[in-house]
């Protein structure tokens, strides 16, 4: 297991450092053959250069990384680039070029596409963003991921790119699409209650061990539906961290026997001031 993170800071970028060249250098190094996990951080001016050249380079160099199983495109924090300012591109060619990949994490949803969303072996797909566009959600729900065990999507808010609604998200809850799925995260959402209510009785829960509805705007309304569900009761873990539940509801959850994380209670009474964690 060997992991590498490539990143270009402000100075490097202004001095003309290029992520493509760093990738070529890595591909030509002895470490390439052993590399199992590659993390692409700030690729230099990530708010003005999209990730397409990185995708092209990685696709071209796919033969150099025979052991690569984990890929993260866009691992940067707010000190480097606002999440909503990270310019992505269509990352689907990576899925095609790396058929042995097991895990793909993407940060930033601006200009993000994932078409065609197909991979025989991918087990983990995570998209971290302040607002995921409906096209990407539809690509995933209409895609082909027979081995996917973990799907974690930050849905976000409309100001930062979430242009869908519950109906956009609902196909992800259908059984049969992801036969191997055991972890479903539909999180960081401004419609977290609607999602919780829609999921509470969804047959897909029967195959899950973890349901992750954390980081969003969950209130008692959504929690009530979860509490009333036998399917939720059977989950091994329910993540509701960062929520707007009342003290009373938190107590009920604690007494219900659910294995739930209800940390980070938010204290807003006012509906207009409820936000998911990542909203930029």
């Amino acid at each position: 297991m060997s992991e590498m993170k490539l990143t270009i800071g402000y100075d490097g970028y202004e001095e003309g450092k290029k992520m493509q060249e760093m990738l070529e250098e890595l591909a030509n190094s002895p470490a390439a053959k052993e590399l199992t996990s590659l993390i692409i951080g700030d690729w230099g001016g990530s708010y003005e250069n999209d990730s397409s050249e990185i995708v092209e380079t990685l696709v071209r160099l796919n033969g150099a990384f025979p052991q690569l199983r984990k890929l993260f495109i866009g691992d940067m924090d707010g000190e480097e680039c606002e999440v909503s300012w990270i310019l992505q591109s269509n990352l689907a060619p990576l899925l095609t070029a790396y058929p042995e990949l097991l895990s793909l994490t993407i940060k930033g949803s601006s200009q993000l596409e994932l078409e065609p969303a197909r991979h025989e072996k991918l087990e983990e797909l995570v998209i971290i963003c302040g607002g995921l566009n409906a096209d990407v959600i539809t690509s995933i729900s209409g895609g082909h991921f027979p081995s996917l065990k973990k799907l974690e999507l930050y849905l976000g808010v409309d100001d930062y790119g979430f242009d869908g609604d519950l109906e956009t998200v609902r196909p992800l809850m259908e059984t049969g699409k992801f036969p191997a799925l055991t972890y479903l995260g539909l999180k960081n959402s401004e419609i977290q209650d609607e999602i919780a209510i829609a999921l509470a009785q969804a047959p897909i829960l029967d195959q899950l061990h973890t349901l992750d509805l954390s980081m969003g705007t969950l209130t008692d309304k959504g929690a009530e539906a979860l509490l009333g569900s036998d399917k939720v009761q059977k989950l091994q873990f329910l993540n509701l961290s960062h929520h707007y539940l009342s003290d009373g509801m938190m107590k009920r959850i604690e007494q219900s026997g659910l294995h739930a994380d209800i940390s980070e209670q938010q204290d807003s009474e006012d509906e207009d001031y409820r936000y998911p964690v990542l909203t930029e």
Binding site: Y47, E82, W85, L87
Partner: peptide, 11 residues
């Protein structure tokens, strides 16, 4: 304070 040369946004 940050300005976005790509989109013209500022924050």
């Amino acid at each position: 304070y940050q300005i976005n040369p790509h989109s013209g946004a500022e924050l």
